[in-house]
């Protein structure tokens, strides 16, 4: 793997250079204290030091609201919406975000492979960046290091304010062809950054904890705090559930079918036309959310379906913390094990 030195002051030039490949999408400031991935119009607005964006990068591949078709009520016909394949470079992406895209690939492309997702995902390039974990990040606890370069084409590793620029793939090589590179002056190896351990067990042990946690009292505790707003799912980078709706224009002659992100934490999520609700209580829904992250897909794929971005915790108005829930389950499990041992 090649590695070069990149001064912070040269980053705008790099962004310009990447623009030759296609649209560059990077973190921008949003509101008072937040960030968002946006198309770069002015490269001085790109933020390199950010904690996390409000919505995950998923929004660029599985848009929050997406038109699926236009239809005519009069003719009873429809027209497909053509998803254009545009070259895009995603710049200054954190490792957990990249890992969430790799997980989304699995969710959207295994079984029936969805063409809309595939088209958007094709010809995408990713430039990673290291980050300083804040109180909500716990990606390290789910097996994703800050410098995890899987999935990236290029990676910027910050050292003393400037960067080491790693070229990871052939795509990455092509991306920086012609860019004025400087030989590496800083040492290539960087020590692991300060990452406070947030989940007490190694993630390998979590499926076992969840195996016995189904009837835990922890779920009711969480449900008593949860106000059911759905923010945890809607900001989650690995959640992919959606709903489909038809919108009709005021002439009542034509309209469109669109899909939008949905959340299994919302009370109507599992309700059927006849009125039966198969996950009626908040306690069942809080459990389902975590089982989707640590058990159901994990059992099959061997990886937690949570990437530790901390969004669900940082954006929960009730301050419900996912690592805290997991730790409480671990604690309960230890108690139960102790009792099992004593009984023997």
């Amino acid at each position: 793997m090649e590695c070069f030195s990149l001064l912070r002051s040269d980053v705008p030039a790099l962004i310009n250079h990447l623009g030759d490949f296609g649209e560059v999408i990077a973190p921008h400031g949003k509101g008072d204290v937040s960030y968002s991935f946006e198309v770069v119009k002015d490269n001085s607005e790109v933020v390199l030091d950010y904690n996390r964006t409000l919505l995950p990068l998923k929004k660029m591949f599985l848009p929050p609201v997406e038109k699926l078709m236009d239809f005519s009520l009069k003719e009873v016909t429809y027209e497909k919406v053509d998803v254009a394949i545009t070259p895009r470079v995603f710049f200054a992406v954190h490792s957990y975000e990249m890992q969430s895209i790799l997980r989304l690939d699995h969710s959207m492309l295994s079984g029936s492979a969805e063409s809309n997702y595939f088209k958007r995902r094709q010809s995408s390039r990713f430039v990673g960046i290291s980050f300083k974990p804040d109180e909500f990040h716990f990606s390290d606890s789910v097996g994703i290091a800050i410098e995890d370069m899987e999935g990236f084409d290029l990676f910027l590793n910050e050292v003393d304010g400037d960067f080491q620029l790693y070229v990871i793939t052939d795509h990455g090589q092509t991306l920086i062809d012609g860019f004025d590179r400087k030989e590496l002056t800083t040492p290539e190896i960087v020590d692991g950054r300060e990452f406070k351990k947030k989940i007490r067990y190694h993630y390998n042990r979590l499926p076992r904890v969840f195996q016995y946690a189904y009837h835990s009292d922890v779920w009711a505790d969480v449900a008593s705090q949860c106000v059911g707003c759905g923010a945890c799912n809607l900001t989650c980078p690995t959640c992919f559930c959606f709903d489909v709706q038809d919108e009709v224009t005021v002439t009542a002659e034509d309209g469109m079918r669109q899909r939008n992100w949905d959340s299994c934490m919302l009370s109507t999520f599992a309700e059927v036309a006849g009125g039966e609700n198969f996950r009626e209580k908040t306690v069942n829904r809080t459990r389902h959310r975590l089982y989707r992250k640590f058990k159901y897909i994990t059992d099959e794929e061997g990886l937690p379906w949570c990437v530790g971005c901390g969004r669900c915790t940082a954006f929960c108005p009730a301050g419900i913390s996912l690592p805290d829930i997991v730790n409480e389950l671990i604690q309960e499990d230890e108690k139960a094990q102790y009792h099992r041992t004593v009984r023997v």
Binding site: K30, G31, S34, L55, P64, A231
Partner: peptide, 20 residues
């Protein structure tokens, strides 16, 4: 409408007002 205002707010990527 069985979903809270937060859903539409999140889909528009608004900064949460609690954060403000």
């Amino acid at each position: 409408y069985g979903s809270p205002v937060c859903v539409e707010c999140k889909l528009k990527e608004n900064e949460c007002l609690y954060n403000r």
